[in-house]
């Protein structure tokens, strides 16, 4: 048994290395990865460079609505706040909400999916029917309803968004579990008397890892867009926080006289999501070379 485990570890380690080797051969994925790492560093550093109260939200009406210049690279908004500073500082909201909602959704979804797939029968039916209902309603609509029920706050936004993430993880996990459940090595583990949760954790979860890793990357992107959409509708991250969607909502009021306010936050969102999609596509190809063909 111990020897078998050793072999498994060797194999999985070399698989991770193999995946990495294929990933860094993919130009798009490397660009995406570098962009994302830079963004993480920027969002951490911006907390040291700027002071939230004085640089990010303080009013400065004297300098309101200035077009991009050497002093204000991205211009200033209607309250005279420097848009460059707000964009950099705002990266943390998108990243935290995206990663947070997906992480919570991942835990909930994989648990539910593993339970549904492993036990089957009535449990499966109930879980999957509920998931189907949520899956068929557009996620923006679900999020709008949940936020409106719970009230507008960053935490509630997170809850609303993790719902839709959970449904897609439930489906992936269930499908993977169902195919793996009846394989001989799982049956063998059963006969050895391993408790069910241990089998799920040790044998089943590692085997549905690749579709989940890919889905995590892509869903963070979708979630960032959804979060900014809700903020744009005025029910996401509350003002005056420099969330990119909220900045677009303010920008929309000045679309005629200061259109850069509409352009810049959107580009920030797009590049972030683009980087995530590039990385996700790259990961999918690297994890499953057959898919590329």
């Amino acid at each position: 048994m111990a020897k078998l485990n050793d072999n498994n570890e060797v194999k999985s380690r070399s698989m991770a290395q193999e995946t990495w080797r294929r990933l860094i051969k993919n130009k798009g994925a490397v660009i995406g990865l570098i962009f994302l790492l830079t963004l993480v560093v920027v969002s951490i550093l911006s907390g040291f460079i700027y002071d939230y109260d004085t640089d990010i939200i303080a009013l400065n009406m004297g300098e309101a609505l200035q077009a991009p210049s050497a002093a204000h690279w991205f211009g200033t908004d209607s309250l005279g706040r420097d848009i460059f500073a707000r964009i950099l500082y705002g990266a943390r909201y998108s990243l935290m909400i995206g990663v947070g909602a997906v992480a919570i959704g991942l835990v909930i979804g994989v648990t539910l999916g593993a339970i549904a797939g492993f036990y089957g029968g009535a449990v499966d039916q109930i879980i999957m029917r509920v998931v189907d209902v949520f899956y068929s309603i557009p996620n923006i609509m679900i999020a709008v309803v949940i936020v409106s029920l719970l009230g507008t706050s960053t935490v509630n936004l997170l809850i609303a968004l993790c719902f839709t993430c959970a449904t897609s993880f439930t489906r992936i996990a269930r499908a993977s579990v169902m195919t793996i459940r009846d394989q001989e090595y799982v049956e063998a583990a059963y006969e050895l008397g391993l408790p069910t949760w241990k089998i799920i954790l040790k044998h089943i979860i590692p085997n549905c890892l690749s579709p989940i890793i890919v889905q995590v990357t892509l869903l963070i992107g979708t979630t960032i867009i959804a979060a900014s959409s809700l903020s744009f509708l005025g029910i996401g991250v509350p003002s005056p926080a420099p969330e990119w969607g909220a900045m677009l909502s303010e920008g929309r009021q000045h679309i005629r006289d200061a259109s850069y306010m509409c352009v810049i936050p959107g580009i920030a969102i797009m590049l972030t999501v683009l980087a995530l999609n590039l990385l996700g596509d790259g990961l999918r190809d690297a994890l499953d070379p057959k898919m590329k063909k």
């Binding site: 992107g221 867009i225 679309i255 259109s259 509409c262 590049l271 995530l276």
Partner: peptide, 22 residues
């Protein structure tokens, strides 16, 4: 296609307004 899925839809709307109507 990649740009299409990465773009927030409402932002594309705003850009179209800036270009085609303003």
């Amino acid at each position: 296609a990649l740009f299409g899925v990465s773009m927030p839809n409402f932002w594309l709307g705003l850009m179209l307004i800036i270009i085609f109507s303003l």
